[in-house]
Simulated assay, not measured.
Amino acid sequence: MINPDIAQKSALGWEAFGTTLRLKWEKMKSDAIGSAAGAYAGVASWWARTKTDAGASIARFVGDGVTKFYELRNGAISRASEAYAGVSSWWSRTKTDAGARISEFVANGVTKFYELRNGAITRASEAWAGVSGWWARTKTDVSNRASELATNAGNRLRELRDNASAKASEIWSSVSGWFTRTRDDAQDRVRTLVDNVGKKWDELKGFFARPIKWVIDYVWNGTIANLWGKARELIPALPEFKRLATGGPVTGYSPTKTADNIPALLTADEFVQPVDSVNYYGTGIMEALRRR
């Protein structure tokens, strides 16, 4: 069991020890704050001095740079002005000299051109006069000779024309008489022949009309066509006989446009169109003509 006195003393000792520690801590903290404040003040003072010195240095640097720039600029402007003045003076002298030389060259060229032109005109005039005189003389000579030839040729042609006209009249009279006699004789013979043929043809038409009609009606339509139709029923490959009394298209197959491999019976005064004509105008036009 702990003695109360010892415990009380211990408590008092610990309290004094805590108080001492607090006092020490406060002093240390106060000293640290004071040291920090002093250090900050020193740093701030140093920064202020340094900033002032740097500002002054920068100001001096800038001032020196601006001064140097203006010195260089003014020197360059002065040198450029001197150079421009020199170039301007040179250009003025050169331009004046060139203008004088160009004017002299143009004047000499114009003078030379007029000399050449006047000389050419003079020579051309002399040449033209010579050519004109030669042409006038030649034209007169040719005209005289042409007139003489024309007169002689005209006289000769009139003689030939008169002789030829007389001969032609004689020949034409003989030929015309012979032709007239021959023509009249031929016309008489042709009329006689036509009359005889017409009479014989009428007799032949009357003689053959009934047998031909009987062959078509009974032999062909009544027998051969019917038998052929029956044969086509047994052999479809056989060609079909077309009955186109009223016209119309021809069906089937032909190896060429002019094969003529399909049998047909035609009537007098009918008109058959070839394949090319049908293809060119079309079956529509052909059908319209048929119905017309």
Rank of each mutant, 00 (worst) to 15 (best):
E115D: 14
M1D: 10
V110C: 03
N221Q: 12
A146D: 06
K9F: 04
W135S: 08
N118A: 02
R117G: 01
A237Y: 05
W128Y: 15
E148K: 08
L238T: 02
A120Q: 09
N155S: 13
G206D: 05
G42A: 10
S10I: 10
A288V: 05
L289Q: 04
A259K: 09
D276L: 07
A124S: 03
V272S: 02
A48W: 09
G63Q: 01
V87Q: 08
D53S: 10
S35I: 07
T138G: 10
K139L: 00
W214K: 13
A39V: 04
R183P: 01
N155L: 03
R101C: 02
K9E: 12
G206Y: 02
L149I: 12
D185W: 08
D31F: 03
A124R: 02
K200C: 00
A41R: 14
W134T: 11
K51R: 15
R191V: 10
D195F: 06
R232E: 03
V275H: 11
E104S: 11
P239Q: 03
N226M: 08
Y253M: 04
A39C: 01
L23Y: 07
I171N: 04
T122Y: 13
M28A: 13
T251Y: 04
W172I: 06
A11W: 02
K29Y: 09
V131R: 04
I58D: 07
V131H: 04
I216R: 11
T111W: 00
A11Q: 07
G229V: 01
R292T: 09
K95P: 00
E104A: 15
V43F: 07
L265E: 12
P263V: 01
K213N: 15
R292V: 12
V250T: 15
E203G: 02
G154C: 03
V110I: 10
V131L: 03
L266R: 15
R49C: 07
G34R: 08
T182Y: 12
A259T: 13
A11T: 13
T283M: 06
K27T: 12
S57E: 15
S254T: 11
K257H: 14
T20Q: 07
I216Y: 10
E170N: 11
A11N: 09
N152A: 08
G86A: 15
S143N: 08
I2S: 06
W214S: 08
S92D: 14
V175R: 12
K27G: 11
D269C: 05
G99N: 15
S57F: 12
L289T: 06
E203H: 02
P274R: 00
Q8Y: 06
